[in-house]
């Protein structure tokens, strides 16, 4: 990826949350390391998938990239500018660049606003265009997300729309500012299966047509396969494997990736999920082991894993794995 194509770049980002005293187990560690040293980049017209179990830090990562939290450490570059310490007007200008689509379209649209006001708000905030220009933009983006005829939806309240239509409105809101970076957090998990594909295809088309950099968070790897060029697997605040999605799904280098992929139930009864690749329960990010984070659940653990945390290794071009198995 050339410098010019890079839209968003995270350099060793960390986010620690303080843990309240009564939840603390030991006295020395009083922080929850939600995100603990991530580096990756996303280019134009490219989507990166972020998968992992709940509590692995994927949503925190997304919020850091959107500058909703301050970073504990590290740097985030958006189109070349450091966004980690933006304030006031500069932060507002960054908001033009990065947008998000939320998981639950029933929650992410203000129930008291009509579709028109929902879509007009971002334009109003950034003082874009006059009344007529705004209306034109709203109609244009509604048609683009497949709500035709757009006129019919302007005066509707969110509760008058179906789940799929609401999620399309949410996508329209994210796109109306013409951002260069789009985060989607489980964009279809609240929708019925039969209409998921439509929303997914729409997202994919928008990312392609507008040459957006996309970040898609999901616990469902089969979904990332359809939406993302590259995918990253997170475990307790670290990326354990990152690479082209198809290669990652087929080759599965990291033991955690193997466990995660094997546990996915298939719609074909002839392929059974497997659970023999992982043991135990997920540990808390507030109480991390000194060596590899995955040590106590790994079926391929070695002596070295207990003491020393592994460093990422590039196994194939663009395919990185963080595991001692591949260290030489």
């Amino acid at each position: 990826m050339t410098e010019k194509d890079k839209v968003i770049e995270a350099i060793n980002i960390k986010k620690y949350f303080p843990v309240r005293a009564r939840e603390r187990k030991t006295s020395e560690q009083s922080v929850l390391k939600a995100v603990d040293g991530l580096s990756f980049q996303i280019g134009r017209a490219e989507t990166l998938g972020l998968a992992g179990e709940s509590g692995c830090g994927k949503t925190t990562t997304a919020k850091l990239l959107l500058s909703l939290y301050p970073l504990t450490e590290g740097k985030i570059l958006c189109n070349g500018t450091d966004i980690s310490a933006l304030k006031g007007k500069e932060l507002k200008n960054f908001r033009l660049q990065a947008q998000m689509v939320f998981q639950d379209p029933y929650e992410s649209l203000n129930p008291r606003f009509k579709v028109k006001s929902i879509l007009e708000e971002p334009l109003e905030i950034h003082r874009l265009g006059d009344k007529n220009e705004r209306l034109d933009k709203i109609l244009e983006v509604l048609e683009e997300v497949g709500l035709n005829p757009a006129n019919r939806y302007l005066e509707s309240y969110p509760h008058e729309l179906s789940g799929g239509q609401r999620q399309r409105v949410a996508i329209a809101r994210a796109l109306i500012l013409r951002p260069s970076f789009l985060v989607t957090d489980e964009p279809v998990s609240m929708l019925d299966v039969s209409i998921r594909a439509g929303v997914l295809n729409l997202l994919q088309r928008m990312i392609d047509e507008r040459a957006l950099a996309g970040l898609c968070i999901s616990h469902d790897l089969s979904l990332l396969r359809y939406l993302c060029h590259r995918s990253a697997i997170m475990y307790l605040g670290r990326i354990v494997e990152i690479g082209p999605t198809e290669a990652l799904i087929k080759k599965r280098y990291h033991p955690y990736t193997v466990a995660l992929l094997e546990a996915v139930p298939h719609p074909n009864p002839d392929y059974k999920y497997r659970l023999d690749n992982i043991t135990g329960e997920v540990t808390s990010a507030a109480n991390l082991p000194s060596g590899c984070r995955f040590y106590n659940r790994c079926v391929k653990k070695m002596e070295i894993c207990r003491e020393i945390a592994p460093q990422p290794v590039e196994i194939e071009k663009g395919h990185w794995v963080e595991c001692h198995l591949y260290n030489n």
Binding site: V193, S194, R196, A197, G198, D220, S222, R225, E246, V264
Partner: peptide
Amino acid sequence: NAFPSLLGEKKSLISI
């Protein structure tokens, strides 16, 4: 048709 799968060839998803 609408159900994404991890296995086999990647087919495009079709919604109802």
